[in-house]
Amino acid sequence: MDNADKKRLLREMIFYRRFEERTFEAYMERKIGGFLHLYSGQEAVATGVLEMAVTGQGKDNDYVITGYRDHIHAIKTGASPSEVMAELYGKENGCCKGRGGSMHIFDASQNFMGGYALVGQPFPLAAGLAMGCKHKGTDQIAICFLGDGANNQGTFHETMNMAKIWNLPVLFVCENNGYAIGTHINRSTAQPDQYKRVDTAYCMESSQHDGMDIDNVMAAAKEAIDYVRSGKGPYFLELMTYRFRGHSMSDSKGYRTREEEKEWEKRDPIKLYSDKLLKAKVLTEADIKAMEKEIDDEIENVIIKFAEEGPEPKVEDLNKYVLDDNPDPRWIGPLQNN
């Protein structure tokens, strides 16, 4: 990876942090409604894993799917940040025309197959995407990002089993941030090492790595993705991380200590990576400052502007997209012979 790429990666992570923190402000201003789950702290995971996948190439991308903490996964896969922000604003120019919102970001044009609010639901959907890839004989793989909390759903066990017996090209990325909403992993999960839950139980290749250092993440992801793409079957990659914000905006974080938070903040993925690049003289403090300024300008003058100025969906379109809006009468009817 050359210096330009390293700078780009740092810029991406700073952008993701600033994007999320700006959505926080918009939420407080009531520009964004519903539930909002921020990714701050976990940036190295989505950024590092997807850096190793095929993204930004439209329909040639790998398929990516995740839970409700989905803004950044969508953007890194190739979704337009402006359209994601407009979606959070519920506008017609949002990526889902304002029908999905924060927890349901989709960009089919980039193979970002959605954010889902039922914890654990994306496991089987991801395996299905992988089944489709295998059936069509493409080189694509499916990548499923979910938190450690999802692994206590039945879908986790059912899907790990089927992904393995059918040898599906799917990478499960477990973003282990230690909490299932507000319950610590040691209180919710008999085996806290998530990668161990699939190795003997489902005979699946798996490993656990630090998820705060993006270089570590990329190295682990490359190995996992190469494995899956080579046709060897599914892989379960556990990355240890931490969310700096609460589970959602209504979370006061009363279940964890300030000391614990401070420990993790020392390993802020952006700080770790910028320190590394500064030390290697890839860039200077002034470069980072300039980068931040440029990002803030872009967010304010392009992205927020796009969302603010976007039109409201039309009430007369309320019933669109429920079923196929242009069905073939040969299959749908109605029956003519009464």
Partner: peptide, 17 residues
Amino acid sequence: SENSYTGIGIGAAMIGM
């Protein structure tokens, strides 16, 4: 595994199966 094999069918259907 009714829930998950149905979900796998849904995932496959999302990309044309």
